[in-house]
Design a protein around this nucleic acid. Structure first.
Lengths: 146, 146
DNA sequence: GTAAACCCTGTACTAACTACAGGGTCAAGA
DNA sequence: TCTTGACCCTGTAGTTAGTACAGGGTTTAC
């Protein structure tokens, strides 16, 4: 048997603390197929190598950027198949960027209605509330879209 | 038996099409206690009145503004108990507005990283992709928070 | 030797719906 | 009158992206 210093690999907990990922999430990524099933020790413990860590960091950065699990799966398939083409990746990213911009626009509409309403609230202990009135009477927040 | 023109009330489908709410969602709101259980016809059909419609519109506007089901429950409890005080409502709304602003800030950070990366993508059919490189190599998008 | 701190599996839970499956009812047209 | 299609009912399962056990086994440090 060889005696390389990294022969044993990391446990799930070690990978988790190196990356900041929740250990249960690592198991979840394996279950949904984003992370490959790693080698196991005799007693059944998962053994992770540096390539696993790199892949997990890729997934985590993708999630931070708001890509869905499905999007990341697609990007990783491109990487795995060594058929990464900038064109395909750009498509995914541009679609996601558009979705993020839509979401920002939605939230800004919400913010402006909420900010207006909070401003008009007296904050006093009185039984009239403009926010309640807004919810009961006015047009939807989507009015701004029309 | 009386013969008022609106005696029968609306069916679930009629309420749904008047408000634009999915009929299944109306049933869901009843299940979670946001909508009261309406009267039933002899054959068991739900019968809705104008007050139900008003309440449903309130819920829908609250959801459009991003309030959670729990928030809306709280607001409706205040309304139902006739103890609406501007102070309490303002607390809920201000907390939610803060959450919306945090979410906008998160999404803007995402947007700027995505926009930079998409811009740097050639869009050509080549096997190097700066987006993939970004996901593999760089610091997280949360770097901007520090 | 033993106790803490890990690891394993499988399952259940979260939010806010949405979508059936498998029935019953109602209204309009032939 | 019959039939067809559009509705209604109930209960349950699926969705997203994890998180949180329960009930066991293992490893490590003192």
């Amino acid at each position: 048997m060889e005696d390389r210093s990294t022969a044993k690999g990391m446990t799930r907990g070690q990978l988790a603390s190196r990356t900041g990922c929740n250990p249960e999430t690592i198991r979840y990524y394996e279950r949904v197929g984003l992370m490959p099933s790693p080698a196991r020790s005799e007693s059944g413990y998962r053994q992770y190598d540096p390539p696993h860590e790199q892949r997990l960091r890729f997934i985590m950065r993708g999630r931070e950027l708001g890509f869905s699990i499905g999007d990341i799966e697609g990007l990783l398939d491109l990487v795995d198949s060594r058929a990464v083409s900038c064109a395909e990746v750009k498509g995914t990213a541009q679609a996601h960027l558009d979705a993020v911009r839509d979401k920002i626009a939605d939230l800004k509409r919400m913010e402006s209605v909420l900010a207006d309403t909070v401003r008009s609230c007296s904050g006093a202990d009185v039984p009239e509330c403009p926010l309640i009135d807004t919810l009961f009477d006015k047009d939807g927040v989507d009015a701004g879209k029309r």
